[in-house]
């Protein structure tokens, strides 16, 4: 199963949309850096799948409160996700 990592705001580039188009069943999605702007209120640009992960520090830093369906994680859990998944694809 693939781990997809998105670090771009959904309002600025197509990274998130391209990523969602390329997700297979069972894949995981992690939002980091400006990608966390997709984790707040529903954007209307692209619905975020349930079970999506969000790097907590990046959300907190930006004053973003992620939706309830999103799992907040730290760097350790991020690494664990990398161990659990292959390949790892970054969208930027």
């Amino acid at each position: 199963m693939t781990l997809h990592i998105v670090n771009q705001s959904p309002y600025r580039t197509s990274a998130l949309r391209d990523c969602l188009d390329a997700m297979a069943d069972g894949d995981a999605l992690l939002l980091i850096e400006d990608g966390v702007y997709a984790a707040g209120a529903p954007t209307g640009i692209a619905p975020i799948p349930a079970g999506t992960y969000c790097l907590q520090a990046d959300a907190v830093a930006r004053g973003i409160t992620p939706a309830k369906s999103i799992t907040l994680i730290d760097d350790e859990r991020w690494i664990a996700l990398c161990v659990e998944h292959t390949p790892i694809v970054s969208w930027f």
């Binding site: 199963m1 693939t2 188009d21 390329a22 997700m23 297979a24 894949d27 292959t86 390949p87 790892i88 694809v89 970054s90 969208w91 930027f92």
Partner: peptide, 15 residues
């Protein structure tokens, strides 16, 4: 058409 399926066949992806 199924880029997700394609990606899942590899060990490493370089973007």
């Amino acid at each position: 058409q199924d880029t997700g399926g394609l990606i899942s066949r590899y060990q490493h992806v370089l973007s």
